[in-house]
Computed example of a mutant assay.
Amino acid sequence: MDIFTLILWGLLIGFIGFMLYRRLATPKYLTEFTPSEFRENYRKAQIIDVREPREYNGGHILGARNIPLSQMKQRLNEIRTDQPVYLYCQSGARSRQAARLLKKKHGHEDLNHLKKGFKRWDGKIKQKK
């Protein structure tokens, strides 16, 4: 292998590593809550389930609104900027992405999410019939 090929491989691996870190790391502006911490304060906030409608209909946190991550850009105006936002998804990855979008495109300050997502939720849920 020549030096040019080694440099290209290094850049590719570095780029992939950076993208994985960006997708999986919790940003500093996002507060991560355990289920019990989430439950303590979520009644004073907007609870947004960023999963797809079929996931939401299968069971969601009582009082949560469904704004899927795939529709978030088009529906940003539905989320108030003067109230805390509590986000969750199935595992936590999509809610981190939603928080990044809300911070960057809509200027939200009080952003929180459920650590490890709905799969760790042990509180009340509602299911659509």
Results as ranks from 00 to 15, higher is better:
residue 2 D to H: 07
residue 4 F to E: 11
residue 5 T to E: 12
residue 6 L to C: 07
residue 6 L to K: 01
residue 6 L to E: 05
residue 9 W to Y: 08
residue 10 G to R: 12
residue 11 L to M: 14
residue 11 L to C: 13
residue 12 L to E: 10
residue 14 G to E: 13
residue 14 G to V: 00
residue 14 G to M: 08
residue 15 F to S: 13
residue 16 I to Y: 11
residue 17 G to K: 12
residue 17 G to C: 11
residue 18 F to D: 02
residue 20 L to P: 05
residue 21 Y to I: 04
residue 21 Y to K: 09
residue 22 R to S: 03
residue 22 R to Y: 10
residue 24 L to E: 11
residue 25 A to D: 07
residue 25 A to L: 05
residue 26 T to S: 07
residue 26 T to V: 08
residue 28 K to L: 08
residue 29 Y to Q: 03
residue 29 Y to N: 04
residue 29 Y to K: 04
residue 30 L to Q: 05
residue 32 E to S: 12
residue 34 T to M: 07
residue 36 S to K: 09
residue 36 S to R: 06
residue 37 E to F: 00
residue 38 F to N: 01
residue 39 R to Y: 06
residue 40 E to V: 04
residue 40 E to Q: 15
residue 42 Y to E: 14
residue 42 Y to K: 14
residue 43 R to D: 14
residue 44 K to P: 05
residue 45 A to M: 12
residue 46 Q to L: 10
residue 49 D to M: 00
residue 49 D to V: 01
residue 49 D to K: 02
residue 50 V to W: 03
residue 50 V to S: 01
residue 50 V to C: 00
residue 51 R to N: 02
residue 51 R to D: 00
residue 53 P to R: 02
residue 53 P to L: 06
residue 55 E to K: 02
residue 56 Y to N: 02
residue 56 Y to T: 05
residue 57 N to C: 05
residue 57 N to S: 13
residue 58 G to Q: 04
residue 59 G to H: 03
residue 60 H to P: 11
residue 61 I to S: 02
residue 62 L to N: 07
residue 63 G to T: 03
residue 65 R to H: 07
residue 68 P to L: 11
residue 69 L to W: 01
residue 71 Q to G: 01
residue 72 M to L: 15
residue 73 K to G: 08
residue 74 Q to Y: 06
residue 74 Q to V: 05
residue 74 Q to K: 13
residue 75 R to M: 09
residue 75 R to P: 05
residue 76 L to K: 03
residue 78 E to K: 09
residue 79 I to K: 07
residue 79 I to A: 06
residue 80 R to I: 05
residue 80 R to C: 11
residue 80 R to F: 07
residue 81 T to I: 13
residue 81 T to P: 10
residue 81 T to F: 04
residue 83 Q to D: 05
residue 84 P to V: 13
residue 85 V to H: 13
residue 87 L to K: 05
residue 88 Y to H: 09
residue 89 C to H: 08
residue 91 S to C: 03
residue 92 G to Q: 11
residue 93 A to F: 10
residue 94 R to Q: 09
residue 94 R to T: 00
residue 95 S to N: 06
residue 96 R to D: 00
residue 97 Q to E: 15
residue 97 Q to D: 14
residue 98 A to Y: 09
residue 98 A to C: 05
residue 99 A to N: 07
residue 100 R to F: 04
residue 102 L to S: 10
residue 102 L to Q: 09
residue 103 K to E: 04
residue 103 K to R: 13
residue 104 K to P: 11
residue 105 K to C: 12
residue 106 H to K: 11
residue 106 H to Q: 14
residue 109 E to W: 01
residue 109 E to Q: 14
residue 109 E to Y: 06
residue 110 D to Q: 15
residue 110 D to F: 10
residue 110 D to P: 03
residue 111 L to E: 03
residue 111 L to Y: 06
residue 111 L to H: 01
residue 111 L to R: 04
residue 112 N to M: 07
residue 112 N to G: 00
residue 112 N to D: 00
residue 112 N to K: 12
residue 112 N to P: 00
residue 113 H to K: 05
residue 115 K to D: 06
residue 115 K to F: 14
residue 116 K to P: 00
residue 119 K to V: 14
residue 120 R to S: 15
residue 120 R to D: 15
residue 120 R to V: 14
residue 122 D to W: 09
residue 123 G to P: 08
residue 123 G to H: 02
residue 125 I to Y: 06
residue 125 I to Q: 12
residue 126 K to W: 09
residue 126 K to P: 00
residue 127 Q to I: 14
residue 127 Q to L: 12
residue 129 K to Y: 02
